[in-house]
């Protein structure tokens, strides 16, 4: 493979990785803006969704059925966690809320470990056939599925927020919670929906990436952290920023791993997070992307 092909290959890998981070960042940013909670358990939703779907598939369910059941279960779980852990402490300072979500995160990981053990589980690729070749670089068809999901999620969220009445309610709550309450919007219900939606989106993302990465009980944590990095690069308050941040991070990681060292791939994104937090805490893209949602 020549250099162009190699670089192109890294770029495709980067887009796939970035798509995953973007999905996580999307859920994080949406939840954060509605509830003020940075949900550190988001990555665990991916792991649980992927593991659950893999088990269902192994038990004989078809992939679409497994997908629907896993997404519905995780939506329920997300809502349940919000009611049991976030809602009772909703007036607590952000410090306590972030500790709570980290507690949830490690509990869910332990739960996954108990149920599924340490063996990785696999899911079949959505479409058969070998990799596609573009200018000498191989593209895994599953990557296209992932990017498709990102596009669908962005378009869906955008349409929901901009075009529907319910979406306007969410946006009102994001822009000014007190004002939203004054006109009769109940932020507690929205917080429940935000977590249920995060669970569903997380499960979907987990199932889409499982054919590429395999599903393991501990896959969620670093994914969640990287989603956070992407969200922070995007400034924590814009959906567009989150997606751009995710793609940027993915490409950076792919090139870092391909050109420098694969062992330090994870370290790279953490360095980016530290760098952004220390240097430009308002996000790299936030200032450019501007408007909230």
């Amino acid at each position: 493979m020549d250099l162009t092909g190699q670089l192109l290959q890294l770029l495709f890998t980067g887009f796939t990785l970035g798509g995953i981070y973007a999905l996580i960042a999307l859920a994080l940013v949406t939840t954060f803006n509605i509830t003020g909670v940075l949900n550190m358990a988001q990555g665990e939703f991916l792991a649980l969704g992927a593991l659950l779907a893999a088990s269902l598939c192994a038990a004989g369910a078809s992939l679409p059925l497994a997908f629907v059941i896993a997404v519905a279960t995780l939506a329920l779980l997300g809502g349940l966690l919000e009611r049991s852990a976030i809602h009772p402490a909703r007036h607590a300072p952000g410090l306590i809320l972030i500790i709570i979500t980290i507690g949830l995160s490690i509990s869910l990981r332990g739960l996954a470990l108990l149920i599924w053990g340490t063996e990785p589980a696999s899911l079949p690729a959505f479409s058969g056939g070998g990799p596609l070749f573009v200018m000498g670089a191989a593209v895994n068809p599953q990557s296209l599925w992932i990017l498709g999901l990102v596009a669908l999620a962005v378009a869906g969220l955008h349409a929901f927020f901009e075009l529907t009445y319910a979406g306007k309610v969410f946006r009102a709550c994001e822009i000014n919670r007190t004002g939203a309450r004054l006109v009769g919007i109940n932020p507690a219900a929205l917080s429940f929906l935000a977590f249920a939606g995060s669970g569903a989106l997380g499960a979907a993302a987990g199932i889409f990436i499982a054919p590429v990465t395999l599903a393991t009980y501990d896959m969620g944590f670093l994914l969640g952290v990287k989603g956070c990095v992407a969200a922070i690069i995007g400034g924590l308050n814009s959906v567009g920023g989150a997606v751009l941040g995710g793609l940027l991070l993915g490409i950076l990681e792919a090139f870092g791993a391909g050109l420098v060292s694969s062992g330090l791939k994870d370290a790279l994104s953490l360095l980016v997070l530290l760098g952004v937090l220390l240097g430009r805490p308002e996000g790299l893209i936030g200032a450019v992307a501007g408007r909230k949602v």
Binding site: A89, A92, I100, G103, L104, S105, I106, S107, R109, G110
Partner: peptide, 20 residues
Amino acid sequence: AGGEYQIIFFGIILVLVMVF
């Protein structure tokens, strides 16, 4: 049961203490 299953309990206790 192997590995760090204790973290379930640590996590749950952490959440309970923080909430209540």
